[in-house]
Computed example of a mutant assay.
Amino acid sequence: MPETSTIRENLKRLRVERGLSQEGLAEKSGLSKATIAKLEQGRRQGERTTTLMRLANALDVELGELVGKRERLGEDRDGASVLAVRDAILSPSLLPGLPGLDAEDHGDPTPLPDLTAAVTTAWEAYWAGEFGKVAAAVPGLITEARLTHRSLGPAAAAPLAQAYQLGACLMVHFGRDDLAAIGAERGIVAAAEGDDEWQWATVQGTYAWVLHHQARLAEAEDLAMRVAEQIEPSFSAPDEHLAAWGNLLMTALAPACAAGKDPKDYVSKAAAAAERIGHRVDVYQTGFGPATVAMQAVHAYAVLKKPGQALKAAKNVRVGNLRGISRARHLLDVARAHVDAGQPRAAETTLAEARAMSRVWFRHQGLARTLAAEVREIQTRPSPVIRAMCRDLGIE
């Protein structure tokens, strides 16, 4: 996660504001007093997300408030502003019954093929980890998509839903989880106006992912599974249907593992769908296939602290078949398994490989900061590579 000093200061401040002693917070969170004391003293570095989620829930705050997660675009900003994305998602033009507030959406609607192509291009930048480009594009995309939707109605529901969904995904990486939830909700509303249930289900999956990042694990898993049950396909269903369903299973798997549950059922069902498809299917701006399921199996073992099984499963992942930053995300799980297996040099090499795929994306990953801090702490003499990585991640 982020800098040790940030967690130390925020944890103590929030605990005192709520009138809790370290013993009281330990009781509410289910953690030991020693863990909390070490975090407040800055003697525990690279704390795991699951631990921080329990603390955030016990303190009744967003995870981002505890860890100080923030935008880290650096030189890749491209003149973009998170505030511009916020203003597009929370536009007053959406308020009912107040004429004149929709001035920003006046003008000629963008032709549907052009709008669809623009949304797809922005998603490609997202999967490439080019968050500066995405942040620059999202406000205009949402505005154009709203205007086209007002003109064409349900025919333009898909690009509007995907524009909101893209904004939601970006805001998760920037630590704006509440704003991400609103963006995902508006994407769901837009998708519901169309006639594609699989599109609607996919945006529901994004909402479940946001709930996971809000440390609402049970709700995230339940939502993803309820939607998956609603669209459950037959074995002879089209690839797109199987992919939408399989992705929901994989979305449910992540919070289940974070809660310590056995993911075997999710993996087996998704693996059957992936085997039926036989290759990666890119649908609704996501990807699903055998490599996706194998990657999530590695994630499950890594989260459950079974490094041997995680590293064994990683040998079955065809990284080249993963989409964009999913490859880098997979490498973080492999690095986590190496750390837990007591292999800091292998973890360092894997982290460096993930960072090389997209330095902007890497800077926004709490797990990357966690692992870099842990590797530095384990090494008797931290290597130049890990020292440079820690500086880039803002770790003291």
Results as ranks from 00 to 15, higher is better:
Ala337Glu: 06
Ala335Asp: 01
Thr370Val: 07
Gln365Phe: 06
Gln343Val: 01
Ala341Glu: 09
Leu331Arg: 12
His330Ile: 00
Pro344Trp: 05
Thr349Tyr: 15
Val385Trp: 05
Pro382Val: 00
Asn321Ala: 15
Val360Leu: 00
Ile325Tyr: 06
Arg327Phe: 13
Val360Tyr: 03
Gly366Val: 06
Gly324Ile: 00
Phe362Met: 01
Gln365Glu: 11
Val334Tyr: 04
Arg355Thr: 05
Arg359Phe: 14
Ile378Lys: 06
His338Ile: 01
Asp340Leu: 10
Ser383Met: 01
His338Gly: 04
Glu353Lys: 10
Glu377Ile: 04
Ala341Asp: 13
Val385Pro: 01
Glu348Trp: 09
Ile386Cys: 01
Ala352His: 10
Thr370Tyr: 12
Val360Ile: 08
Arg376Gln: 13
Arg369Asp: 02
Ala354Asp: 10
Arg369Pro: 11
Val385Gly: 00
Arg336Ala: 11
Arg369Gln: 12
Arg363Gly: 06
Leu351Trp: 14
Ile378Asp: 03
Val334Met: 00
Gln379Asn: 12
Arg327His: 11
Arg323Glu: 05
Ile325Gln: 10
Glu377Ala: 12
Arg355Trp: 14
Arg345Thr: 11
His364Lys: 08
His330Cys: 01
Ala347Asn: 05
Gln365Tyr: 04
Val360Lys: 02
Val334Phe: 03
His338Asp: 11
Arg336Ser: 11
Arg323Gln: 12
Val385His: 02
Arg329Phe: 12
Trp361Asn: 04
Arg376Leu: 11
Leu322Trp: 07
Ala352Thr: 10
Thr349Lys: 15
Arg363Ser: 04
Arg363Ala: 09
Ala337Ser: 04
Thr350Val: 14
Arg323Lys: 11
Gln365Lys: 08
Ser358Ile: 00
Ala335Pro: 06
Ala337Ile: 07
Glu374Ile: 13
Ala328His: 04
Arg336His: 11
His338Pro: 00
Arg355Tyr: 13
Arg345Val: 07
Ala341Pro: 03
Arg381Leu: 09
His330Leu: 07
Gly342Val: 07
Leu332Gln: 00
Glu353Cys: 08
Glu374Trp: 12
Arg329Val: 01
Ala347Val: 00
Glu374Arg: 15
Ala356Lys: 15
Ala337Val: 00
Ala368Met: 09
Leu351Ile: 11
Gln379Glu: 15
Ile386Phe: 01
